[in-house]
Design a protein around this nucleic acid. Structure first.
Lengths: 218, 218
DNA sequence: ACTCTAATCGGAGTCAATTCCGTTTACAAG
DNA sequence: CTTGTAAACGGAATTGACTCCGATTAGAGT
């Protein structure tokens, strides 16, 4: 009902105090085998072909094992996105500006959202799958909470005024995989058009100017 | 892959030219029986208990019949919301201001979104179910397209400037059932806080003031 | 009333997610 | 090396969405 909290679930979340019980050797092996199998399946047959049975068979383990490792289908999707997710987190937490510290908060917010869209660009299907757990699923994931916290901080710094918490969720709603796919595939928007629309909204919310230089697009 | 287009699928959509082949008597009877059964099940056991098999059994028909009528689970959810949806459409298309014609476009947009939230308030679970078809499902439904078109019109009238189309989807993303449930249940926001946040964003996007009187809240 | 045809039915069948639980195994302690 | 136990395993069983298709039947035409 909430985010998967099984073995090594914390990967994508900020490090916690007490260290986890340490993964057993066979478990680690199976995790690797499963992720590899899933990745191959995805590349060869598309995200849609990522069925738990299929992945298990391909990796040569029982289905039960897939569930113990990843909790459910969405959990598997999150795991497949984990490496990229960690790079992203590192980038906005301590990478170079404008995504990381050093740039004005408003610019960082913009960079954050644009980068988020870039990530959707390359793995939209997988992100969509990850958001599929339940209607509210997305909001419970570690990745979401981290992003949300980050935005709340930046919004406060940027002087967005009242209810930064609301605003953070609102901004993240604008970069959901579902909406993104709708815009890019059904409506045929270009990536730049989506970013421009986002900037427009941002400009209405943040006091300082949001235009000007960024991290390489639009 | 797209919205269900079976018998009487157009209910919730704007009226079309050629009239549908007219529903057969037995089909109509079963539709009523199914909706009644579904409603009872929902009231007694919650939305989660709305399984196609269960509804079919309760109504005394075969599962195949449920699928012919509603296409899929989400379609059944839409059907259950249909009456309310039609009232809503009538209200914003030709009802009294500020929702209907007569009020300034900006005020109508605000009223539209607030009313949308009020609807979520009473049937969030069902709306969430209806949005569950697939990640992009929501955006393909007749109800969504109608709302979207309406917003685009109003945004243009309100002088929202560039890319009203983007803005329409963005605003609708802020009133998705998933986000709403997250805000109300997980974060514990009050309905007014959600509306206030929305107003805040609206104020940044629409030229004219958005404050002042409305249709009875906040 | 009879016939024809398309719309409807029903429910067994298929497919994939998720759960359960008895069995096996890694590995830390003795 | 032996043992004890928590963790991991596998895969049958369950569940529910959705598909298929042969059997029925409403209702227009005659």
């Amino acid at each position: 009902m909430t985010a998967w909290d099984g073995p090594l679930a914390g990967h994508t979340t900020l490090p916690v105090v007490g260290q986890a019980p340490a993964e057993r050797a066979d478990a680690a092996r199976n995790r690797r085998a499963l992720l590899a199998a899933a990745h191959v399946l995805m590349v060869q047959c598309g995200v849609q072909a990522l069925s738990m049975d299929r992945v298990a068979a391909e990796a040569g383990v029982g289905v039960g094992t897939v569930y113990r490792r990843f909790g459910d289908r969405a959990g598997l999707a999150y795991a497949l996105l984990d490496e990229e997710e960690r790079d992203f987190q590192e980038a906005f937490l301590c990478g170079p500006p404008p995504l990381g510290p050093g740039a004005p908060a408003a610019a960082r917010i913009r960079a954050f959202l644009h980068t988020y869209l870039d990530r959707l660009e390359s793995e939209a299907e997988l992100h969509a799958l990850a958001e599929t757990r339940s209607p509210t699923a997305r909001h419970g994931s570690g990745a979401y909470r981290t992003a949300r916290t980050h935005l709340v901080t930046l919004l406060t710094q940027a002087g967005a005024g009242a209810d930064g918490a609301y605003l953070a969720d609102a901004l993240l709603a604008l970069v959901s995989a579902g909406l993104f796919l709708h815009q890019r595939r059904e409506l045929g928007y270009t990536a730049d058009r989506v970013k421009a629309g986002l900037d427009r909204l941002l400009a209405g919310v943040l006091p300082e100017a949001v235009g000007a230089r960024d991290h390489g697009d639009s």
